[in-house]
Amino acid sequence: MPRTEIRITGYGGQGVILTGYIFGRAAAIHADLHSTMTQSFGPEARGSACSSALVVDDGIIAYPYLNDTDVLIALSREGYEKYKVELKTGGTLIYDSDMVQPQDTGDVRMYGVPAARIAEELGNRIVQNIVVVGFTTAVTDLVDVEAVKKSVKGSVPSALVDMNLEAFRKGYEFYQK
């Protein structure tokens, strides 16, 4: 896999950092790839637009920051507005379709999923991000599906693994449909 840059954005509490962590861990621990995750910290990141940035590569990653975002995952409108300019031409936008109404500029591929609604149907809105993880895995082939599932299992509290895997499946299958 050539160097691939992913930005995940939303507001504090949506699991933005965990989403980056799950993909990063899937790549570095459960697939034979390198990955580096960085994240925005500080008062400006709490309760407003926050983000995590992930670089995945099959070679060693020296520069850990994003130059040219390949995939932008937007869980909130504010995050989308802040980071849409980073997304490169031909890049992929993945968004929660109930939260974000992106403008179709014709130069990026856009994939929406009503992740918060699906999570609510599963009984807990907290798994919104895991629905997006499943959906993104299906859309992008970023990291092998089994690797991402292992990473989800290892990254959430053990009592909530089943619900999270179900959220993952719903997101994954939403794209398949």
């Binding site: 390198h34 580096t36 994240q39």
Partner: peptide
């Protein structure tokens, strides 16, 4: 700070 807050294998 970059190394402290950077996540890798």
């Amino acid at each position: 700070e970059c190394i402290g807050h950077m996540t890798e294998k």
